[in-house]
């Protein structure tokens, strides 16, 4: 694979978590470039987790679903855990009807919950369990 083209999708590093998000205007080329860039960053930074916020996605078709599945597997092979956060209700219903359950992909209701799941807390001390 040649050097990835910057996808125009920002990838931030927060502690040992890479945070990124997908926009609805995602075309195939951007999606591929994004996959490549994220993979490179995971290999380079060695994060424990990757959070992909998809709350802006108005549809997920089989191409985007496959992109998410492949990213999850790739990241796992590189030692990072991926959480996909913020899927909208209509998108979830449609995906299920499409027959795509995104097996093996961890999900979280919001980006914040996803970050908590990845062990990243706002502030220096983790909050006490069960108080939220």
């Amino acid at each position: 694979m040649s050097a990835p083209v910057p996808a125009g999708v920002p990838i931030l590093r927060l502690g040992n978590v890479l945070v990124t998000g997908l926009l609805d205007e995602l075309d195939d080329k951007t999606a591929r470039a994004f996959t490549d860039e994220l993979t490179e960053r995971i290999a380079a930074d060695g994060p424990a987790g990757v959070l992909i916020d998809i709350s802006r996605l108005e549809i997920i078709d089989s191409f985007v679903a496959r992109t998410l599945s492949e990213l999850t597997t790739t990241a796992r092979l590189l030692g990072a855990r991926v959480v996909v956060a913020g899927m909208r209700p209509p998108v979830a219903i449609t995906l299920v009807e499409l027959g795509l359950a995104l097996e093996g992909v961890e999900t979280a209701l919001t980006a914040e919950r996803g970050m908590q799941a990845l062990g990243w807390y706002h502030g220096s001390q983790p909050p006490e369990r069960g108080t939220r």
Partner: peptide, 11 residues
């Protein structure tokens, strides 16, 4: 399907 959709949303 409902159960699957709930899981996809992260619950």
């Amino acid at each position: 399907q409902t159960v699957t959709a709930v899981r996809l949303m992260g619950a």
